[in-house]
């Protein structure tokens, strides 16, 4: 009986449901369009999901800790634009500088978020909304909205560093950028951190019950500082990745992506109220959204339907998470 309920629990878990939706979608697309059923699809999807994965994993960490961060698009824009601008102005041409600067800039804004949220106890949504506006407004005021489309050479060349290249039977070649390693390392690192370190458990603890975490002896404020600064730094790396993949540094082009990222995280089973969430769920959530964004057209659905379908999916996905949470509240207590 116990194992039976475990199995039914497993089958209705967020992960299982997303996997099923992914399968159904893939089969539908595959039946409609044979081109979908090939290794190249995986390569294209992986490339498309790199940035979303990085940002979503960061967001997941923040949400588990009981916060939320809507300032990351602005932080990313600053961390992408400023280093490139400096490199062009001072004719710096190496890889350490842009990544190092991006990490520093991201960590700096993360620190400010942490001060506002952990020390001044401003609600995270308000604090990061403010920071978002402050940073993006600052970029606009000081630098305008012009893109830097001529990147320094070394940075530009990164675009052509591939992990592998795959030639399909059609003769077309598909390459996966070496930058894909970044979300992979991040995902593995975060999994281990969240599961096996005392501090990682502390992230869950403060998201589940902040005062209990303090009583238990977790350094609540220190953990929050860590989360926001770490996330800031990783968002900085993400910003450079975006810059390389788009072959341009724009002070605006990531703005507005926060809702889609939060949606991917929540669809992946992270509870917006904190304390729950997993790397695997987030990866699945991102995969689902990337699949829809990139391959819906293969089903013959016009692109202008895409926002509608994505919105629909998000509402459905979050409603499902919420229903599950409600059911587990109502469930007979043991």
């Amino acid at each position: 009986m116990k194992t039976k309920s475990r199995i039914s629990e497993l089958l209705t878990s967020n992960q299982a449901v997303i996997i099923m939706v992914l399968l159904v979608l893939s089969i539908a697309i595959g039946l409609r369009n044979n081109a979908f059923v090939s290794f190249s699809t995986v390569v294209i999807l992986a490339r498309a999901a790199i940035l979303m994965l990085i940002f979503a994993l960061c967001q997941m960490l923040v949400i588990i800790s009981g916060g939320i961060d809507v300032s990351f698009p602005a932080i990313a824009c600053a961390a992408m634009y400023l280093p490139v601008k400096m490199m062009l102005n001072y004719e710096i041409d190496n890889l350490w500088f842009p990544f190092g600067m991006a990490i520093l800039i991201g960590a700096f804004f993360g620190l400010i978020n942490a001060v506002l949220i952990a020390s001044l106890r401003i609600p995270p949504l308000i604090a990061t909304l403010g920071m978002n506006s402050l940073i993006s407004g600052g970029l606009l005021a000081f630098f305008g909205s012009t893109e830097l489309s001529r990147l320094p050479d070394r940075l530009n060349e990164m675009f052509r560093s591939y992990l592998f290249t795959y030639t399909a039977s059609s003769g077309l070649t598909y390459s996966l950028t070496i930058l894909f390693i970044i979300p992979v390392v991040l995902a593995i690192g975060l999994s281990i951190f969240l599961r096996y370190t005392t501090m990682g458990r502390g992230v869950y603890a403060i998201g589940g019950n902040r005062s209990a975490a303090r009583i238990a002896g977790f350094r609540v404020i220190r953990i929050q500082y860590f989360v926001y600064i770490f996330v800031g730094a990783v968002v900085g790396i993400g910003a450079m990745v975006s810059c390389i993949l788009n072959r341009a540094a724009s002070p605006t082009n990531l703005m507005g992506s926060e809702m889609m990222i939060i949606a991917a995280v929540v669809v992946g089973g992270t509870r917006i109220t904190g304390g729950h969430g997993s790397v695997s769920g987030t990866i699945l959530g991102v995969t689902l959204i990337a699949l829809i964004q990139n391959n819906l057209i293969m089903l013959g659905i016009p692109t202008h339907w895409q926002p509608f379908i994505l919105g629909f999916l998000i509402v459905l996905g979050t409603a499902f998470t919420s229903l599950k949470a409600m059911a587990s509240m109502k469930q007979a207590k043991v």
Partner: peptide, 25 residues
């Protein structure tokens, strides 16, 4: 002062972990 989002076992064990200054679980 318990954690609703953690398992029963973890709730029981976690303080001790902190008390002993363990870094890993």
């Amino acid at each position: 002062a318990v954690f609703p989002n953690m398992s029963v076992a973890e709730n029981i064990g976690i303080n001790r972990l902190l008390l002993e200054g363990e870094k890993l679980v």
